[in-house]
């Protein structure tokens, strides 16, 4: 038994009405909020808003060079999407690494973002894709870059009465490679000790025209490393360059000591993962070039 009220939203309109209640918390996949409630780590009182009937928030669509993902799309649905396999394989790798089959069958992309964990696996690849989230309330809809959406551990810029409606990113241009790498303490059901995602676009000469680098579990929120991106942009890819990017990244991330690893080990392994992720993304982009 949970210590809360439960309200079922039958439509998005109804959702926006119920969400005005200050104690309202959306229950999507429930894979984080329910264990949190059992451990009393979530402030009370709580009114859970069950959104499981809002099928209209579960979709993956492409239109005019953009991909929209409904907030209630489960990880399982994401990782079997041919569209995402073609355009966002790093996002698929990231979502496939979340929890177990059971978790992925319940957990949603919107839930992963709103939960705002520093270790949220879906976030680094979405940061690389410069995803934008659309937030809705009863009288308004606004778009916020994902990088501004998550503002701290467990904190987002969602206002009272607002919900995350969908996530949008542009289909990457040609000659782009992406990758996601995650280091956990074990293979099954692992939580990121540190994770990284990169996106590289090459010009016709094979030089890096555009680079995005993001990390999870390396700062209070998943973050981009603008120094690493700057170190890469306009350069010819090489192991040496990637090693320089790994150095540059250290000024952007700020990991903590916790149960899973020390700050020092995270700094080190973030660099190792980044170099490997860059190699993978580079090879992908080169294939795309040929």
């Amino acid at each position: 038994m949970f210590d809360c009220e439960v309200n079922v939203a039958k439509s998005c309109t109804e959702l926006t009405q119920i969400l005005i209640e200050p104690s309202a918390r959306i229950l999507a996949g429930g894979t984080d909020i329910l264990p949190g409630m059992r451990k009393n780590s979530i402030g009370k009182p709580i009114t859970l808003i069950d959104v499981s009937q809002l099928n209209e928030l579960s979709y993956i669509r492409e239109h005019e060079g953009q991909i929209d993902i409904g907030a209630l799309t489960t990880h399982s649905k994401l990782i079997t999407s041919p569209l995402l396999l073609q355009h966002a394989p790093a996002l698929i790798d990231a979502c496939a690494s979340i929890g177990s089959t059971q978790t992925r069958n319940r957990g949603t992309l919107g839930g992963n973002l709103c939960n705002a964990s520093p270790a949220a696996d879906s976030v680094p690849p979405l940061l690389c894709l410069e995803a934008v989230v659309t937030l809705s309330s009863h009288d308004n809809q606004r778009q916020v870059p994902l990088s501004d959406f998550i503002i701290g551990p467990g904190r987002t810029c969602l206002k009272q009465g607002e919900y995350l409606d969908h996530i949008t990113f542009a289909v990457p241009q040609k000659h782009t490679g992406t990758s996601f790498m995650k280091l956990g303490r074990r293979n099954g059901m692992s939580i990121a000790v540190v994770s990284t995602s990169v996106l590289l676009r090459l010009d016709q000469q094979g030089n890096i025209e555009y680079a995005r680098v993001a990390f999870g579990s390396a700062a209070p929120t998943p973050i981009c490393s603008h120094h690493a991106e700057a170190a890469l942009t306009g350069k010819t890819p090489s192991a040496q360059l990637f090693s320089e990017a790994a150095q540059a990244m250290r000024t952007d991330i700020n990991p903590i000591d916790d149960l899973r690893a020390s700050r020092e080990y995270r700094l080190h392994s973030a660099g190792v993962l980044l170099q490997r992720a860059l190699q993978t993304a580079w090879h992908q982009a080169e294939m795309d070039l040929r």
Partner: peptide, 15 residues
């Protein structure tokens, strides 16, 4: 789909 029944709220099985 395989799910953990401990993480499903009863209202979520409607229909």
């Amino acid at each position: 789909e395989a799910v953990n029944a401990c993480l499903v709220l009863i209202s979520q099985v409607e229909g």
